[in-house]
Design a protein around this nucleic acid. Structure first.
Lengths: 339, 339
DNA sequence: ATAAATGGCTAAATCGTTTTCGTTTTTATT
DNA sequence: AATAAAAACGAAAACGATTTAGCCATTTAT
């Protein structure tokens, strides 16, 4: 309500002086500054973010771009954990966030246009299909960008260490004595590719032979599909002794299918998830899974993005890899070594 | 990049004319309008939201205020479902959303100040502690407001029909033959109060006698506490035959505790949840629960808030109650009637 | 033929800041 | 005492839109 103009009038100074006093410029006398600051707080002055943004071209707003196969948006477990920490870190530094949508959401504006329209200072993007024209337009623009779990040339990337996760998980299972290990992987994203290749690489270095029929596919968080694929695996003449799932939630589909056949976990078959979200904690036996460090990922993304916004560089090739940790539940049985 | 000024220059008209042409005013000739519109799209014109907001005092931004005991934020299952639909509905109508934070988040600005600073056109609030001074300042302000699952005088409220939910659930369980029914309720919020009183009311109308020791407390989504309370209930000399939980996730704590004692669900004891979120779907047996209609709640909140923003009224006392539906899983056993 | 109404357009003020470039006054330097 | 330098402040333009009031030229009514 109260503007600089009113403060200026009250203090008999110009609005330029008010602006400088409030923004801590050095060419304002001690006494006038105090006069102005007191008046400002008495009058409940707040800067007008629109006016400021208009003039400075800095909105203190960060765009969040998220799009996944299932259109789950904020209900996406992994993403909302990352985003929650991103939001906190951003807001601690005075940045608010805005959800960027594109034509897929029925609007005429593209992602890039939406960003321009709102004047966001930077954008974080996650889990989208990274290769549509609309996304690439944004990537090629001069808007500071941080990608999560994907690497573009010339952008900052924050990546969960999926390769390590898969390696750790598989190694753990191997150490427990398992040799027939199946992997139901997720949709065709860069994350999945990394996990899959890590799976093969680790298997090879362990000397494991993974029959092709042990590799199957179910979408992220699709428990029903996971159950179906589990059934397929169990029906094999030589079923696996352990099944890996794309995420903890999908692993539930496994629990269901396995138990509906009267089999027990882990006595009759072992399973493991990926993500380490809350759901993994509540099952009995607890699910062995690889916990991604969503807090660090979100926070780091915010910090690096803000740093890029405030210290523009022409070329950026930073990639930060965030490690996770293995959570050992009771869903993987210790077998005596057998080949 | 391209501003109205540039379009005006290119078309040899004034910027006023450009503005009117773009905003569909009637006093612009057919031909000039087309000229301008073509130039605008060729030049990739986009309105500048800051400039527009500065002049019109309408930001097309809606504030989202959410605060819960556990600081779960976007990871809160019920809330993120509601919010996802709120966001979609809002963005369909050209509104973006901004997370409003207050002093609790370590910033110097209060909720109200944050709203003023960003010039949000309206605010939706949910699941916060509705009676802090900071929140009340916002409620008493002249910013259009919609509350979710809480009623203030003079604001629009969108409420999930928790009373119906509890009644439906309890009635269902009663019909299944249960008479000794325990209820582990959530934290002390208005929602919990409604459910609790509905529980008592329904119990009374069914002629049920609920011993005080059957009523216990665990925070929302606190599976561990729920497990502890479950243990207490099972240790009673006269344990219940069915236990109600504050939410589906908490019910998991029940599964765990119950099974760790070698008891079976529902053969030895029945349980039911509340919320009907995805997690309820993946357990075996599926959890009987009351599904809140988060999609309708979120969408309705957006529609009503935007309507209020665009059609200001001085007094508002609307309350919309959104019904949910019972999901009958296999977690409640049919007993032969016994008193 | 004149007055009134209409259509099509513009000038200019305004929203609330930031920022450049002065100007004035004071203080330091020689 | 003259000059230079520093300190404190202000005028005004600019950011990109919206909107009011008015102007001019036609058209229509009288």
């Amino acid at each position: 309500m109260a503007s600089m103009k009113e403060i200026a009038a009250r203090c008999n100074v110009s609005v330029a002086t008010v602006s400088k006093a409030i923004n801590g410029y050095s060419d304002i006398g001690e006494d006038t500054r105090n006069l102005i600051l007191n008046a400002a707080s008495e009058m409940g002055y707040l800067p007008n973010s629109s006016a400021r943004a208009l003039k400075t071209k800095r909105s203190y707003n960060l765009g969040v771009l998220f799009f996944d196969e299932g259109m789950s948006g904020l209900t996406h477990d992994y993403f909302n954990h990352v985003l929650e920490h991103f939001r906190r870190a951003a807001q601690e530094q005075g940045y608010d966030i805005t959800f960027v949508i594109g034509k897929d959401s029925g609007r005429k504006m593209s992602y890039y246009d939406h960003c321009r329209y709102r004047g966001v200072d930077g954008v974080v993007m996650a889990c989208v299909d990274f290769y549509t024209e609309e996304v690439l337009d944004l990537v090629r623009s001069n808007i500071p960008l941080v990608t999560i779990d994907h690497t573009f040339d010339g952008t900052i990337a924050i990546c969960s260490n999926n390769a390590l996760g898969m390696e750790t998980l598989l190694d753990h299972i191997y150490q427990k004595g398992h040799r027939r290990i199946a992997y139901i992987h997720g949709e065709n994203t860069s994350v999945t590719k990394i996990r899959l290749s890590s799976f093969y690489r680790t298997a090879q270095s362990l000397g494991l032979d993974i029959p092709e029929e042990y590799i199957r596919r179910a979408a992220y968080r699709d428990a029903d599909k996971a159950a179906i694929e589990t059934a397929e695996l169990l029906n094999l003449r030589q079923p696996p002794t352990c099944i890996l799932y794309p995420d903890d939630y999908a692993a539930f589909g496994g629990y269901t299918e396995i138990r509906s056949r009267g089999l027990r976990i882990p006595e009759d078959i072992s399973i493991a998830g990926f993500d380490g979200l809350d759901v993994a904690r509540v099952l009995a036996p607890r699910l062995t899974t690889f916990c991604q460090d969503t807090a660090s990922i979100g926070r780091l993304a915010a910090e690096k993005l803000i740093d890029l916004v405030e210290n523009p560089r022409t070329t950026v090739i930073d990639k930060y890899v965030v490690d996770g940790t293995l959570f050992t539940g009771g869903s993987v049985k210790t077998l005596r070594a057998q080949t």
